[in-house]
Design a protein around this nucleic acid. Structure first.
Lengths: 149, 149
DNA sequence: TCAATTTGCATAGTTTGCTATTTAACAGTA
DNA sequence: TACTGTTAAATAGCAAACTATGCAAATTGA
């Protein structure tokens, strides 16, 4: 072998592992919430609306780390699926107030349980200390990556 | 507050953080490899083919943690983009041999550098020990999640 | 006041993931 | 040999991410 740089071991690449992990979490959550009639992409919006119902799309975008266009499409599917309604804003003709339906409220507790179960299963192999390390390292890396580049 | 279980803090959820992180890695890699004329989804297949050119789709699927249909589509785009060719298999009329083009070979070193730079930037805030913990914890969790559920 | 700019949301178009299904070729067996 | 079952790859259809662009309402400022 001429040069070590000629190799790239994806099993040692943080990016490769993170991607892999994200798809496993996605799949695990998808299975668990399927009976509730929701899909993983709707989860973040639901979490935020369960805490604070009746926001505009703009307010949601600010809190959920996704692009405006992504959220607009997800909200359209959620409306189609009967999870939210969108009514006109009282003072701003461009904005719309997003409100959860009864159906969305009804699945709240089960959805929390599904998410917690997915996390619990994933981390079940780790010690308490390792869990803390894992979470805190991820937060550090996210901050770093959001910072500059 | 009636009940602690009524809350779900996504900033403390491993799944939420992992998802976030994966999209940041994806974006970082995308920016860096854009000048090379490739996209992140093609990366895994390229890595494997750079090591072992001339495999069938089935062989690639076994090594890359993605579904057969996903790979088939990605390979179609790679063919369209002039990164691979697909020739008939000498003994099996169903299979096709996937081979890298000159164009794909030419960007190899720059692609490795781009991936390494993305990882390096991401982990730059971590100590050597933390990096090792991060990688080894991710491997543990992946093994756990792949295992059963 | 009214033209220009900004802003909130929607839409277009692409990639990449998934599941499910189809197609064609292979392999084994009656 | 003809039938049956299996297997490799392609295709259909959906979700969800992104960038870029469009549109109409709101705001600004000359």
């Amino acid at each position: 072998m001429l040069n070590k740089s000629m190799d790239f071991d994806r099993m040692n690449s943080a990016g490769y592992l993170v991607n892999n992990l994200a798809r496993l979490f996605w799949a695990g959550l998808r299975h668990r919430i399927e009976p509730l009639g929701i899909v993983p992409g709707q989860f973040a919006a639901l979490l935020e609306l369960w805490i604070n119902d009746g926001q505009t799309q703009k307010e949601l975008v600010k809190k959920l780390d996704i692009e405006q266009a992504t959220l607009a499409n997800t909200l359209a599917r959620m409306e189609r699926d009967g999870l939210i309604t969108r009514k006109e804003h009282p003072t701003d003709g461009r904005a719309r107030i997003i409100r959860l339906t009864e159906k969305a409220w009804a699945i709240r507790e089960d959805a929390y349980k599904a998410a917690n179960a997915t996390n619990e299963k994933a981390l079940s192999t780790l010690s308490g200390e390792e869990r803390e390390q894992f979470i805190s390292i991820m937060r550090k890396v996210i901050d770093e990556m959001r910072g500059n580049d």
